[in-house]
Write a protein that binds this DNA or RNA. Sequence first.
DNA 1: CTTAGTGTCGTGTACGAACACGGAAAAAGT
DNA 2: ACTTTTTCCGTGTTCGTACACGACACTAAG
Lengths: 358, 358
Amino acid sequence: MTLKLRFIKAINRTRIKDIALKANVSIGTVDRVIHKRGEVSEATRDKILAIINEMEYQPNILASTLASKKTFSFALLFPEPISSESYWNKPMIGVRKAFQEIQQYGVNINIHLFKQTDTKTFKREAELILNNNPEGVVLAPFFSRESKEFIAELKKRDIPYVFIDSNIKDSDKLSYIGQDSFQSGTLAAKLLDYSIPENATILVLQFAKEKDNMNHLVQREKGFYEYFNSSSAKKELITLEITDPTDITCQTKITDLLKSNAGIKGIFVTNSQVYLLARLIEEANLSGIRVIGHDLINENIHFLKKGIIDFLICQRPEEQGYRSIITLFENLVLKKEVNNENYTSIDIITKENLDYYK
Amino acid sequence: MTLKLRFIKAINRTRIKDIALKANVSIGTVDRVIHKRGEVSEATRDKILAIINEMEYQPNILASTLASKKTFSFALLFPEPISSESYWNKPMIGVRKAFQEIQQYGVNINIHLFKQTDTKTFKREAELILNNNPEGVVLAPFFSRESKEFIAELKKRDIPYVFIDSNIKDSDKLSYIGQDSFQSGTLAAKLLDYSIPENATILVLQFAKEKDNMNHLVQREKGFYEYFNSSSAKKELITLEITDPTDITCQTKITDLLKSNAGIKGIFVTNSQVYLLARLIEEANLSGIRVIGHDLINENIHFLKKGIIDFLICQRPEEQGYRSIITLFENLVLKKEVNNENYTSIDIITKENLDYYK
DNA sequence: CTTAGTGTCGTGTACGAACACGGAAAAAGT
DNA sequence: ACTTTTTCCGTGTTCGTACACGACACTAAG
């Protein structure tokens, strides 16, 4: 049995000439119709359009971008990574990969970084971007108010923008690339619920220092509680907020709680700093506690392999970076329709499947 | 703060002319060197190569494929899907997506399907492929002996081939795209181990009728047992092989076992037909049993949503199909190096994160 | 010394689309 | 009726690369 996918190139090759011939006009005229450059009488335009339609003509993008000297400039507005191990390095990897693939098409990418603790740097970089007048923008709308000002200006200039990591509703965005934090919280809840005995206690740990994605943390927590509210699972929940996880008094506070309350069989850390907790557990030599946290960063991987962290819930930051650029590319260069919302998968990672998420 | 990714197009534009000028030769000569077409004296060739190297010249693939009238023909050799819901439809989706993206580059894809129950159809289709003399081949080496004959011939003709779904070791393949079945079994074991109380019993169900991926099933089972052998988990395991899951006597056999043995708190089905078991559980109105199976097919999704199936372990068949084609493309058209082994991630899917795996 | 053969290399055209330029025809102004 | 403006359309060149064709020099055979 043999199937074939229909192949266009050979047909496409002299397509425009064919159209011109059929319509009894010159190639230039067909050209003007395709590019909506006016300067064509309605009668001939309609005739040509009909023929184009009938022949199912599709332009050859290779030749098109080759001939048009037009170059596209994309701007990126990301938080500056705190360290070389930090979360925001990962989307950048995807961005670079995307760049490698599409630079042939004349796409240029300018990267702008702002400090997560300083709205002024955000404003300054946003203005720099506007000065460059790029064809498209990818931004992490970290500061809500400043982001809204920025996208208002982008909208005025008809520059499409893609949100990454967090979303702003009702904003005429081209697309949103990111994860559903609420569901990721619910998922964490289910895993913990399944993993520990009935009537055990769960500790929810909120490390609040790293302001990275504040909104996400809240959503995750909400999702987590929502699971236990709406299910029949009998678990007791304790919440603990640690403002400075590197502070020793805070650390002993956690250790003391764990030692004094033997009923705690599961711990949920709402952000990527679960490795700090894992370190405490290791030092205190505690066992029998299921630990779940977020993000595939090296410190976490270390404790996942050791078996101290049981589950990591991850988004795919590299893929998000990649997709954000590709989305702009598809819309602007290839002139395709793109999805308005693009949730990346919520991955569950354990020691066993870790190797296959790289 | 502003970073820039280096942008090549503007430089590339007149690159070849520059090289020709610097080497004091004609464009045609530079051309011959780049395409290794001989016909160039060693002295000039070395001189040109040095300059090319120094200038870090990279050809513009757009222009290249545009100019070369060469078309690439890829052949696919897949098992025929048993039904429209069957597993082997999914890689095809990815193949079609890849085709959409790369047909611009002059790539044509011929799809050949064989019957999973009939080695003769495999041989016949393999021969049809050889007659077409394609530039590259993607195959699922379903029948070991026949596959080896086939790839021996491909090797003789210097046609690169990519394995999908299962692998043949030491075969000079261009790449393998698929999952690690053993690890997926280990992962299933861990999830079940975590999800049920100590000292409970686990039932391993082997539906053997669908011969789909026999080797995979064995590997999965091995991985599953390996987990319990090497860990301190105290669980009793029962294995049951069902030759015909649609047969009523077999079905009652399962139901009776579950009813009589209340210690069974977890069930592992080694293939995608876990929905058959779920149906039985629903009909018998049993509860408190954790069920884990494989593959994101519609029937399984149905019971996952209902909460009867707790976990599905999935490979990404669409991505596998997509990647297999893209790998050939990158190697043959873009002349890139490609990975020799390409394990796709082993995803854990629950009711909670289901929506983000599409 | 001529001629055929071989090894080198330069020139010209093509791939499919984009767009500038300028010419012809039609419409508007004087 | 003649000029000017506007509308419409054909021609020619370009993008960066591939490759056919033929030119030229050099060697070996006659």
